[in-house]
Design a protein around this nucleic acid. Structure first.
Lengths: 236, 236
DNA sequence: CAGTATCCGATGCGATACTG
DNA sequence: CAGTATCGCATCGGATACTG
């Protein structure tokens, strides 16, 4: 048995050998959420070095959790979960629910990351409450460093060929902005996590919406929330 | 944020910070299984050093997962799961099921450990199919080193005050033996994990039962199996 | 029984720069 | 875009011995 093995036949230990190494579960969460390409995965684990990311992907490939394949169109490499990998969804969800319930908001909201928040929001944005035309929403976090201060979500329900229906930019995309969303990052993160609401934040002045009145009125609806937002928090 | 933190507000990452450190999940599995005292926990994680064990227990205490209390009788220190800790059972089970399904038997059965197997068996032994009198069953793993070669399970359904209904000894307890169970450790482990059966092992000569005929005939019934034994294996 | 104390070695992993 | 390559340190944790 390898040096780092637990030396236990117990299935829990066998699974832990594969899963309980640094970054692995966080990476899996990003894969479960749907990212398949190297640089998309990087956006989900921005503080992980590329070298370590590729090492973990190889480890998971060896463990039968991930398969590396040439993308159907474009031929670009993609990382897909195998059936074994897809069955880890249960465990990733169990961990997320537990984290939402038992890790204090105080601790959680010390770990702010604008790029990660926007990347997650982009994925969960709900198109249904949005107009059929293209909408551009700019997020402003005034207290952040320049690189994290401004973000644009471009929603285009009609975009067929050209990528996803929601694009995320951190540089001016050149379109007119329909709605400006200004707040501090902590407030926006708390809303995303279900610890706060758009209404409460607006009323207390922590969130300022400027522009299209319909978009503003609908924000709680089109703003998708974290998959764990509905889990009731129990920690103090 | 600490050096080792993931720096993510995502609940999965927050939970992973607590749980995905070396030995932690394996230790939790032993706690979920019911062990509370330091040396009982050690038997469940025999290859973990006592220093690291106590460190992990402190870490889990800080995370609100474990509470260290003086035992009701005896005043001996005990480690109990808090409500937050008990809710980790779902995740530990999810990992165990996944391990049983997707880690190959070949890999699993390379990690044999007689003391761990006997310790787990002791806990799961089913008293109902056993006689009402005291029964002593000796396990013999001829190929193992002297210290791992002989084990006694002493089942005493009437033992009220004196500890558990099933005692495990690795030294001759001085009682007459009712049943001798001789096999290689791999076979016994495979049976425990649901990858083999008493019948098949006896028929093929890998398991030899000597002594009380009723005890022998009932073995598959009184021998409790791993909590994951019924999970169907899918890995090649 | 329930831990402490100490030491030291491997290695995990972070940082950074580079490439086809 | 999708990775490689290299370096070097911190630290994790394994081993062992000891104690109230």
């Amino acid at each position: 048995m390898s040096q780092r093995s637990y030396g236990q036949f117990c299935p829990v230990a066998m699974a832990a050998e594969v899963l309980c190494t640094r970054w692995t579960v966080v990476l899996l969460r990003e894969m479960v959420a749907g990212s398949t390409r190297f640089n998309d995965l990087r956006r989900g684990v921005p503080r992980m070095s590329p070298a370590l990311l590729v090492q973990r992907l190889r480890d998971l490939e060896d463990a039968g959790v991930v398969r590396r394949v040439a993308g159907r169109d474009s031929g670009v490499m993609e990382y897909h979960l195998t059936p074994a990998g897809r069955e880890l969804e249960t465990m990733v969800e169990a961990m997320g629910h537990w984290g939402q319930r038992w890790v204090t908001s105080e601790l959680t909201l010390q770990q702010l990351d604008a790029s990660l928040l926007m990347w997650d929001m982009r994925r969960k944005l709900d198109l249904k409450p949005l107009p059929r035309r293209r909408s551009v929403i700019q997020f402003l976090y005034a207290e952040q460093t320049p690189v994290d201060r401004s973000w644009w979500l471009i929603v285009d329900p009609d975009a067929r060929g050209a990528g996803a229906p929601v694009d995320l930019c951190s540089v001016e995309p050149g379109f007119d902005v329909d709605l400006y969303v200004a707040s501090d990052l902590r407030t926006m993160t708390a809303i995303w996590m279900g610890l706060d609401t758009v209404r409460a934040a607006v009323d207390s002045g922590r969130l300022l919406l400027t522009g299209d009145a319909d978009l503003a009125a609908n924000m709680q609806a089109w703003l998708g929330l974290s998959p764990f937002a509905k889990t009731r928090k129990l920690a103090s």
